[in-house]
Design a protein around this nucleic acid. Structure first.
Lengths: 234, 234
DNA sequence: CGTCGCTTTGATCATGATCAAGGGATGTGG
DNA sequence: CCACATCCCTTGATCATGATCAAAGCGACG
């Protein structure tokens, strides 16, 4: 259940033929190394991150099925970020020239692709606001809701819960918090009857209250009814 | 002295004919209101920001000549962010359908545009890392160096200084700090002989040391020698 | 001359980091 | 079957970065 843009691209580029599957914990892009392809994730979950000079890790975002990984990681010289799988993951590398060739051969698809990337940027903007201006509790709540919404979009979450290998360390690395503090905040959320995380299962017990707490507005995740904009002529 | 991509786009779209000039302090996009165009800034400086529910302002980034403003602000329903000018600014609105039409008519340009946007995302990623994991001093140093580099690219900064109406409040709103603390950190940087800000003139007195302090790596701002990637055939 | 916008200073407070250690699964080799 | 290692979660005590509150200085400008 990939988003339309992703499956359309996959079809056009005949990506199945070159897809690869790796197990959990593999790096598919390494920061600082040359990288001249982007990757369409078709199954599995990965993170994009950077290790800072003091050894801290900052996770930039989570890559879910349908996401194009590496567009912002790739630079001509070297990748800006590393990408590592959290679960068994299937992905298709798309050489950058091939991707850009799409602009010549399938402009309409390219336009959609372009617009869908603007969604990633919007997510980053929201995360920036969160990390910059929100309390630890708000950040954690917001982050868990963002994941819920994104996973629902691709059919990997039900009404109020989802399953993924999310450690407290990862939460701290996404949000710029310390592990013990994440632990304490999660306890509070649990005691408040808002969220329960247990054995890789995240259950949002009270979505409305949590969303209010987090000031969560999911409009920035809306899939942009691009059809209205790039209407087929006639 | 606009970047090549911007001036190429401007030429093709015959934007001069519809350019507008507004004075400092004007909002050209308002969060929450409908917005169905993006804006190519040709002169002047603006900020993109959001006012949070508690009244705090988070500045997402600075828009300089050559930047396309509003791609991430625009959603079909309503803008995610506001954009306000800091100086007198000239800009050209580009209706979204027109922009997307470029993908049909000038795929090569569209590809460049696409790639240049990935630069904005990279900047956001860096800012996220900064706000999330760096100390106030590092953040401020990093921010001032980023501005220096970006302004140099478009000929608006010399070797080590630039002029723009940057208040301490704005620095605090970009970086998620309080005004008094920004003030104190700036004093330290001044006393250390690293940076001096006076009367809208920012002087980096010791670039190397400041860059080391900030762990500043400007590769993420590199203009991506896209020519190598989208080489004209033949 | 008063007001407004910005900078500066001081005192106190608190959010969240850090340090240190223990606990509970799960897995692995002897 | 047990030692032990590893990974992750949890808890406690202390510390510090940076927020908050309050007020004063300082031009510029009408």
């Amino acid at each position: 259940m990939l988003p339309p843009v992703a499956s359309e691209a996959a079809g056009l580029l005949d990506l199945k033929s070159v897809s690869r599957t790796v197990r959990a914990g593999q790096e598919i892009v390494t920061e600082g190394k040359r990288c001249n392809a982007v990757f369409l994730i078709t199954e599995g979950i990965a993170i994009r991150y950077r290790i800072l000079r003091d050894g801290q890790r900052q996770i930039i975002n989570f890559l879910l099925p349908g996401d194009f990984a590496g567009v912002t990681s790739c630079r001509i010289e070297s990748a800006l970020y590393s990408i590592k799988t959290l679960t068994q993951t299937t992905y298709s590398p798309i050489p950058v020239p091939r991707l850009l060739g799409l602009f010549d051969t399938h402009p309409r698809l390219a336009a959609k692709l372009f617009w869908s990337f603007s969604c990633e940027t919007a997510m980053l903007g929201e995360r920036l606001i969160g990390v910059s201006r929100r309390s630890a509790t708000e950040r954690i709540a917001h982050f868990l809701l963002e994941l819920l919404t994104r996973l629902q979009r691709i059919g990997l979450a039900d009404e109020r819960s989802y399953r993924l290998p999310l450690t407290q360390e990862m939460i701290s690395d996404v949000l710029g918090l310390s592990i013990p503090y994440v632990n304490r905040v999660l306890q509070q959320l649990r005691e408040a009857g808002l969220v329960r995380i247990k054995d890789q299962l995240v259950v949002i017990e009270n979505i409305e209250e949590l969303a209010a707490l987090a000031d969560f507005e999911h409009s920035y995740l809306e899939p942009l009814s691009i059809g209205e904009v790039v209407a087929e002529p006639g």
